[in-house]
């Protein structure tokens, strides 16, 4: 229920991101038309709008949860929701920034973007890289304050492994279910993307590189799932090793 409310709250902000991106588009005096490169550039502007707003919201949630912990609030569920929101929004900010940066590279290459905007986008990309890493680090540290059993440093390469190992049986089951759903969604998206790309290749020149790349990712996705599943079932691996 709380997650539903968060999504309802997030939709207007994402819409605001698009509006923000559109305003930047108008300010840039960009000649708006409906060719492919222009649409890509518009999408890039919109993504950076989402990225900036997500980052601001992420910092807000991070500060809010920090303040609750400092006030020694015992409403741990609320603090955890705020920490989760902060991490989710930092990830959205980083990924949308990556998309917009990729489109900027495309725009710079085909001269459809003013150099001043290329510079602004590049600076924002660097800022987002550092800011999202810092937010994730702070959120993990806050999480460790209210859940002292949690281990791992967000800036460490082994963080995911250390954090996973410090989870108990229920949390590992939740991670397992999340991974399964994530795998199913990714498989469907990759398959339909591949079909759409093959269909699109009949009409526009998209090259074979994208089709090969999506196909390879799909193969890796399925292989990793089946190999690990096989190992866990037949090689005597201990499931729930944390509960000995």
């Amino acid at each position: 229920m709380k997650k539903d409310r968060f999504i309802i709250k997030a939709i207007p902000w994402i819409g605001l991101g698009f509006v923000f991106g559109f305003v930047i588009l108008l300010l840039s005096n960009f000649n708006f038309n409906f060719d492919l490169s222009t649409m890509f550039t518009y999408f890039g502007y919109s993504c950076i709008g989402i990225s900036i707003i997500s980052m601001i919201l992420s910092i807000y949630f991070m500060c809010s949860s920090k303040s609750m912990i400092n006030k020694k609030s015992d409403d741990f569920d609320k603090i955890e929701i705020k920490i989760d929101n902060s991490i989710i929004l930092a990830c959205i900010s980083f990924i949308t920034c990556l998309i917009s940066f990729g489109i900027v590279m495309y725009g710079s290459h085909f001269n459809t973007l003013k150099s001043i905007f290329s510079t602004i986008f590049t600076i924002w990309f660097i800022v987002t890289c550092f800011a999202s890493s810092y937010i994730q680090y702070v959120c993990v540290e806050l999480n460790k304050k209210i859940n002292p059993e949690k281990k791992g440093n967000a800036l460490d390469f082994n963080f995911s492994k250390d954090f996973y190992n410090s989870c108990d049986e229920a949390q590992k089951i939740i991670i397992g279910e999340v991974c399964y759903k994530s795998f199913m969604i990714n498989s469907s998206i990759l398959l339909w993307t591949l079909v759409a790309l093959i269909f699109a290749a009949s009409f526009i020149d998209i090259g074979f590189f994208t089709i090969v790349l999506v196909g390879l990712i799909n193969i890796v996705n399925v292989l990793v799932y089946t190999i690990i599943s096989h190992k866990l079932q037949y090689k005597g691996s201990i499931i729930y090793s944390a509960m000995k």
């Binding site: 741990f76 209210i146 059993e149 108990d168 049986e169 949390q171």
Partner: peptide
């Protein structure tokens, strides 16, 4: 030996 969330 488990977390507060699991007890909850």
């Amino acid at each position: 030996g488990v977390s507060r969330q699991t007890i909850s």
